[in-house]
Design a protein around this nucleic acid. Structure first.
Ligand SMILES: [Zn+2]
Length: 188
DNA sequence: CGCGTTTGACCCGCGC
DNA sequence: GCGCGGGTCAAACGCG
């Protein structure tokens, strides 16, 4: 069906490329519940995208308030699914979204190593390239500030992790982590 | 000392 | 063939 399904079939349990923005803070705070909800919703949202070729789904999620509200610390963060696009066959898949955050602290629990920086045209801001440091995992990540809204950051994940997060966080959920994607059957 | 960031160079595909 | 745009490499540096 969709790339997601294929991916899940391959790994039997797909891991969200971008689980928890601002993971540290979450760990510090006790607002995990809300985050859980937040992410769940988010994923369902972008799940709506099927194996279409270059699809551009503009889904506005009103989650910033909850994030800001619950998080009393100093890192306002909100995620709005912007667009999801898939290229080529269902071998790999790309997932891009926009995050409202001045800071690019998006350590989701995976270790990323920056391997490149590039100045894209038509955009005064540089683009950063990251790669997952785990061996056998070639997941790449690309972070770039929005051209117009410097308060937003466009993050693009490419590939699928073939390992659990090094910072594996145990959650109360039965078998699903907050950042674990669910079968497409869960979406309507 | 091990490892991550930095940064310019290099590479590759594409359009002219 | 060349230039350009986007992506990656790797030497050097910095830091814990
Ligand atoms: Zn990985």
């Amino acid at each position: 069906m969709s790339a997601f399904n294929s991916a899940m079939n391959n790994t039997s349990q797909y891991q969200n490329p971008n689980p928890n923005p601002n993971y540290h803070q979450v760990a510090d705070s006790t607002t995990t519940d809300q985050l859980d909800e937040l992410f769940d919703f988010k994923f369902s949202d972008y799940f709506a995208f099927d194996g279409a070729l270059e699809e551009e789904i503009s889904t506005q999620a009103n989650v910033e308030s909850s994030f800001n509200g619950s998080s009393s610390s100093s890192t306002p963060l909100a995620s709005n699914i912007r667009k999801v696009k898939k290229c080529k066959t269902n071998d790999e898949f790309r997932f891009a979204f926009r995050t409202k955050s001045t800071l690019e602290i998006m350590d989701d629990g995976f270790k990323w190593r920056k391997y490149g920086k590039k100045m894209v045209k038509n955009n005064p801001n540089p683009r950063n390239y990251f790669k997952c440091t785990s061996e056998g995992c070639g997941v790449k990540k690309r972070v770039e500030r929005d051209r117009d809204d410097s308060n937003y950051v466009v993050t693009t994940y490419e590939g699928i992790h073939n390992h659990q997060s090094p910072n594996y966080i145990v959650h109360d959920n039965d078998n699903q982590m907050p950042w674990t994607l669910q079968p497409s059957s869960s979406l309507h």
